[in-house]
Nucleic acid binder design. Sequence first.
DNA 1: CACCTGTTGATGCACCCGCATCAACCTTGT
DNA 2: ACAAGGTTGATGCGGGTGCATCAACAGGTG
Lengths: 132, 132
Amino acid sequence: MRVHQQVTLSLEGAFKAADLPPLVWHDVLIELAHAPDHRLRPVELGSVLQMAQYNLSRLLDRMVDAGLVVRAPCQDKRGHWIVLTASGLKRQKEMYGVYVRVLMQDMGAHLGEDSARKLARQLGKVLSQPEA
Amino acid sequence: MRVHQQVTLSLEGAFKAADLPPLVWHDVLIELAHAPDHRLRPVELGSVLQMAQYNLSRLLDRMVDAGLVVRAPCQDKRGHWIVLTASGLKRQKEMYGVYVRVLMQDMGAHLGEDSARKLARQLGKVLSQPEA
DNA sequence: CACCTGTTGATGCACCCGCATCAACCTTGT
DNA sequence: ACAAGGTTGATGCGGGTGCATCAACAGGTG
């Protein structure tokens, strides 16, 4: 928990310093960037990110306002597609750069290549929903 | 991060189900329980818990309202002592029980004794502020 | 078709967090 | 003693989170 807090604070600080949105925005953006046609349903995002539905709904509102994603109609008329825009993809790459840099500094500097791999494997054993 | 979220959600859920306050309350309570005379200055709590000052201030307000701690005057008249009450200590023990039970279920079930120890050691290497 | 159930997503409300700021007090130097 | 600077803690305000609830739609059954 302490490690998580430390890394999280460092990441959020770096994003803020670079005038970028918070970490959750990156989680959403990267999922969309990896999705076919750069689009996903809110419910899919929610299940992947393990994120509360009402919370995601309002986060997407903000991201639409910021022009990073758009809502588009889809077959199931209850919902819609969340589609990554060009500036959304650009923002995702900016954030990913900061993300990698911070993790390298904060974790990579303290762990060797194989230590990191072992750590990831140990942590993976605890996940109820196996990693992608 | 996924492990942290999973465990955190599980813990908060267990606390809520047992009609207990959130996890941060336990962090404060256990620090007080281990402190000499069951009392600490807010600034000490803040530095141990790596918690923002304004945030801690209001958390303590709520804990005072709940009767788990009291504010008592101290030499340095800028601040005061935060003193654990009897019902605060009782609550801490209740929360600790749930805490241990959940961690055993969520992590202990997936890791052997030595795996857990290795994991803790690897994680410890990343901490900028070495553990107590 | 009409109906019932389950799913998807949005929203009002209360609460919590982050930021900036302030008041009160300690400490140090002169 | 006094002024200047640092430390400790509280608070107004905007924004984010959790809970409960609701509207809209899908899918299956009589």
